[in-house]
Design a protein around this nucleic acid. Structure first.
Lengths: 149, 149
DNA sequence: GCAACTACTTAGCAATGCTAATTAATAGCC
DNA sequence: GGCTATTAATTAGCATTGCTAAGTAGTTGC
């Protein structure tokens, strides 16, 4: 039984992790719909609000979509008055995308709604279970960072 | 400081949990694209393969989408030879949807690819971290079940 | 046996993903 | 300095997936 890892168990865990993530997001998707904008726009807006002005390319990379896709998402955000394109005087090919006040407000409001919804249900768990989740989230984030970095 | 729960901390955890789930799924999405069918079809196929023959309505509910949406997804699965509609002799309004051999094979193959990909990166974590994740997944699933049940 | 209900489909719209091709600006080389 | 290659973003066009509204067919209930 001397083995460095337990591949079978890890794969099983990976499967359950994946499945749980899907179900979690399906549930909060209903809450996010109340924001009035689609999920791609919401997610991109989040990057802009927290990540300051970014180029379209960086934004596309952060969201793991292609530039044309992100270009259109930014179009929609601009049309809704939630973001704006600025000229990048250092490189006039590139644009700088930033959130408007309205965009930041909408994001924070949506985040509050989603988080309250999730937190309400998490609060049924014991504090020991919450601590497990807390540690697990940190570990998964670490694993994800390793992949991307 | 006498309080029943810690709302602030729970909301913060909810937010990190949400964000982590998004990033996790964005990563494996790339793997799933290799299956050659879209994410909605893949996810529905999974329900059919594991859940036996189901009505369109049940399938739509399981996937948290509306019946017309699911009707079209099943159209695509049928066109690709991955699923088929059967007549329900007990209630001829309803259909029974089941996977073909080809559909089951494709699903299992895709699952193997996705799981291997995830597991490869999870395996960088310590076994203590993996145990945290294991417990956390169970807790989150429990919380999700409470919501739906 | 007719009305109401239910299951599914069809039609049509919006959002999001992609690739290929275009436009504009920068960088590199002689 | 000026030509070429590269890079950033956009436009065009397609497929998928979400929705609501409306239509069709079958079942239930009085």
């Amino acid at each position: 039984m001397a083995r460095m890892t337990k591949p079978k168990a890890t794969e099983d865990l990976a499967d359950r992790l994946h499945s749980t993530a899907i179900h979690l997001l399906r549930l909060v998707r209903v809450q996010d719909a109340a924001a009035g904008i689609g999920p791609a726009q919401l997610s991109a807006l989040s990057v802009i609000v927290f990540g300051g002005p970014v180029s379209l390319q960086d934004l596309a990379r952060a969201e793991m979509v292609r530039p044309p896709t992100m270009s259109r998402v930014v179009d929609a955000l601009e049309a809704a008055g939630l973001a704006r394109r600025k000229v990048n005087s250092a490189d006039r090919r590139a644009v700088l995308i930033e959130a408007t006040e309205k965009g930041a407000a909408l994001l924070h409001q949506g985040r509050r709604r989603r988080v309250k919804f999730l937190a309400r249900h998490l609060s049924r768990l014991t504090s020991s279970e919450l601590q497990d989740i807390d540690r697990a989230v940190a570990s998964v984030q670490k694993a994800l960072r390793d992949i991307r970095g």
